[in-house]
């Protein structure tokens, strides 16, 4: 997959923040220190995660995200940095597939709307969205109501597997196997839609 630098750094207000990659002097904040301490691991991860030769640019982008984090102390945690790096790559993959996605699902550009009485231009897309919902409902029917409920708690409400186990009164391994089946169903759902 070709890799492009997104080139929007200049648009970010954070672009004026000190850049620790080029900073000639010692780092000044705990976040910068942590970032520099983990720089090689982050770079290695980004490279392996699909960044390849663009990994250095991606590392820059990662720094911008970290510097913009609402809680700099939390952002200085290695796990947080890695998670943000993973998120960066997920977002990047998604935006590269955007045109594709837009055709399929939820919204698309519309060059203005004519005056006068006309069918709602949103109606057709709304219909597509509803069909998509019906299709997913059907796909999830096969995994059983508990697995479907667990999937929703985990993906939409953000509950951890441990909390879900307590809430549903089942073992952690049951939650895990329900989720695995649900995820497999979502993957099959996606593949069947392409």
């Amino acid at each position: 997959m070709p890799v492009h630098a997104r080139g929007d750094h200049a648009l970010l207000p954070d672009a004026c923040l000190p850049n620790p990659n080029k900073l000639p002097m010692a780092p000044t904040t705990p976040l910068q220190e942590a970032y520099l301490a983990h720089r090689e691991r982050l770079l290695r991860f980004l490279r392996a995660r699909g960044g390849g030769e663009a990994a250095e640019d991606l590392l820059q982008e990662l720094w911008l995200r970290l510097a913009a984090a609402p809680d700099p102390a939390a952002a200085a945690n290695f796990g947080y940095m890695m998670r943000t790096a993973d998120r960066l790559m997920i977002d990047r993959y998604r935006s590269e597939r955007q045109a594709n996605l837009r055709d399929k699902a939820w919204a698309e550009a519309q060059p203005g709307v004519a005056e006068g009485i006309a069918p709602a231009p949103g109606a057709e897309r709304e219909l597509v969205a509803r069909q998509e919902v019906a299709r997913l409902e059907k796909a999830l029917a096969g995994i059983g109501p508990r697995a479907a409920a667990i999937l929703r708690r985990h993906r939409i409400d953000g509950a951890t597997q441990r909390d879900i186990a307590a809430e549903f009164g089942v073992s952690l391994s049951t939650v895990e196997s329900d989720l695995r089946r649900a995820y497999a169903a979502l993957i099959a759902f996606r593949e069947s839609g392409q």
């Binding site: 997920i90 998604r94 597939r97 996605l101 699902a105 919902v133 997913l136 993906r155 939409i156 593949e191």
Partner: peptide, 9 residues
């Protein structure tokens, strides 16, 4: 991507 695309649905 499969997981994230399914989320809004």
């Amino acid at each position: 991507a499969a997981l994230e695309e399914a989320d809004p649905v």
